[in-house]
Design a protein around this nucleic acid. Sequence first.
DNA 1: TATAGCGGCTAAAACGTTTCATCCAGTTGA
DNA 2: TCAACTGGATGAAACGTTTTAGCCGCTATA
Lengths: 343, 343
Amino acid sequence: MAGASIKEVARHAGVSLGTVSNVLNRPDMVSPTTRQRVLDAIAELGYVRNDSARQLRAGQSRTIAIVVLDVANPFFTDMVRGAEQVVEETGAMLIVCNSGEDSARERRHLELLEEQRVRGVLITPVGDGPQPHLEKLIDRDIPVVLVDRGTGRASRCSVAVDDVLGGRLAMDHLLDQGHRRIAYVGGPLSIAQVAERHAGAAAALEDRGAGAELRVAATTSLTVAAGRRAAQDLLALPARQRPTAVFCANDLLALGVLQELTARGLRVPADIAIVGYDDIEFAAAAAVPLSSVRQPREQLGRTAAELLLEEAEHGVAHQHRHVVFQPELVVRRSSDQVRRARR
Amino acid sequence: MAGASIKEVARHAGVSLGTVSNVLNRPDMVSPTTRQRVLDAIAELGYVRNDSARQLRAGQSRTIAIVVLDVANPFFTDMVRGAEQVVEETGAMLIVCNSGEDSARERRHLELLEEQRVRGVLITPVGDGPQPHLEKLIDRDIPVVLVDRGTGRASRCSVAVDDVLGGRLAMDHLLDQGHRRIAYVGGPLSIAQVAERHAGAAAALEDRGAGAELRVAATTSLTVAAGRRAAQDLLALPARQRPTAVFCANDLLALGVLQELTARGLRVPADIAIVGYDDIEFAAAAAVPLSSVRQPREQLGRTAAELLLEEAEHGVAHQHRHVVFQPELVVRRSSDQVRRARR
DNA sequence: TATAGCGGCTAAAACGTTTCATCCAGTTGA
DNA sequence: TCAACTGGATGAAACGTTTTAGCCGCTATA
């Protein structure tokens, strides 16, 4: 029972091998009576298609992969859910791979995906430099869509949110609130999003921040724990260098900073204001509700998946596109001086 | 360049097909000089193994799947990370599938996984009843390990946390704090964890809760949004029926309840106390730090993966095991009457 | 000197599909 | 009555691996 092949089904139903295949793939090309005989045989033998053989013949799988930086970061899981919606409508399967911000793991995953001849890859790449493994996929005509990551490259589609603008929004807001010593918490800078959000903040400062300064507190990853450590570093500074506001590269960091500051007895935003990035669901529910730069998380995943499917379908005729969404600042208590007064 | 097969590599290196295969799979069986010739050819042609063909021949893939109830729930992503650690050490690949608490999607995923002849499946099943698709996998000798879900069945391994005990811990704590009208927020009850946590709470009440009552506020899913709706329902009750404490089936619900109560101007824990379940990272960082029943999230994933690999390796010789971890109550401000007084 | 053993390699079969060229028996049209 | 077509089925080839049996030339042993 376990492991009947198409051949045994054929024998059992007294028909040829090709006929069984037809029943499976274009049922209306076979007469109702034989079709039924075949279906009965299938049911009786508990036959299940062997996808390896199918793929081998087809040269391609019906699987699409999404490679994210951190599967435990709600920003990415929301993105995954968006992509899922689109992919599953087509009967394909979305598999989720986690690079964990580790470029060796990323490479390993891409190698395996290439061996599997996946139909396409959605990826938020770890590094910012040249991406030989991605190029290799593209050489093989496996469509690649960069997610949450713009690109000048004409060789692939991309879906991104304007991170420079996001950085500007956050910085402008903090400057508006009267802050003059501001820290940017994030890292590693090799992650493009981290660098661009910083660039935006720096540009805003440049434009109008006479007398203001932006210090970088580098982290090694984008997690709550890293945020806590960064906060410790900031608190170790001499009082007159200590920032009055912190802009974090993502919400996990911001939550970590918030936890550590609170644990050390500082008040947010009275002593130090915080702005995060992503606006994950938990930002609004934090001990002090977190101001954050909102990204259209599910939309990002949906759009990326749509571009990928389009490319997979149209092949060479496909025109690469670069979709850029606008972020939006959501001000909550963690950076709101007015409410602070009211508190 | 895109799509060289082993055959072309062989021709290019002037050697037979089997030799190339040997270079790939048991390099020391082939002499250094030919080995190098083959490796050169591989590099030059950009050859990449075709996993479909490999699997077809092997009859099995090197992929392990984990099917979770909600990929956006940090509890599950932590579990996934635990499983990843173990699986990747073996060179296999872990693919993450999301059933979204939807049994049709779960079935669809299992069908696809079966077609792919995955080496094994880690799953937190949606329903509690008989599980025909799981049985089907097992009939096919595909190992299945139930995660976060105990079972009496002898036909598979399982890894779980004692949910009845967890429910007891939460309820005992609330009773200790003097609460007498308590609500259990969770659902659907067809999810075993939901039912067992409730059972534990009910048992605790039975044991010692003279004069106390436990009302069930059923939800349709285990999300923040569902928690908010449940809180609205509770607030719609006449004042004298309104509970003074809420025990939630997971932390997402608890955060939702917390948000809604706060938005409606109620104080936590003064007006209503809350205890959650899972102790996800965000529980401690919530507006009011959340008491929660802690589960060993990553450990759960690691152990499950280890059991699965063991079964996959030893085949029939394998003895099914059922590992049960103990949960632990973490009391924070959301249910702490002492701190409430101090506040 | 015959024999056995061995390292290194080859040739061919097998895995389970899908597809393509054929074939066959009816039916239609002239 | 014959040719042309048609719907429904068949048989075989092909996809790219891995594995197994076997071959060949060499060395060590008796």
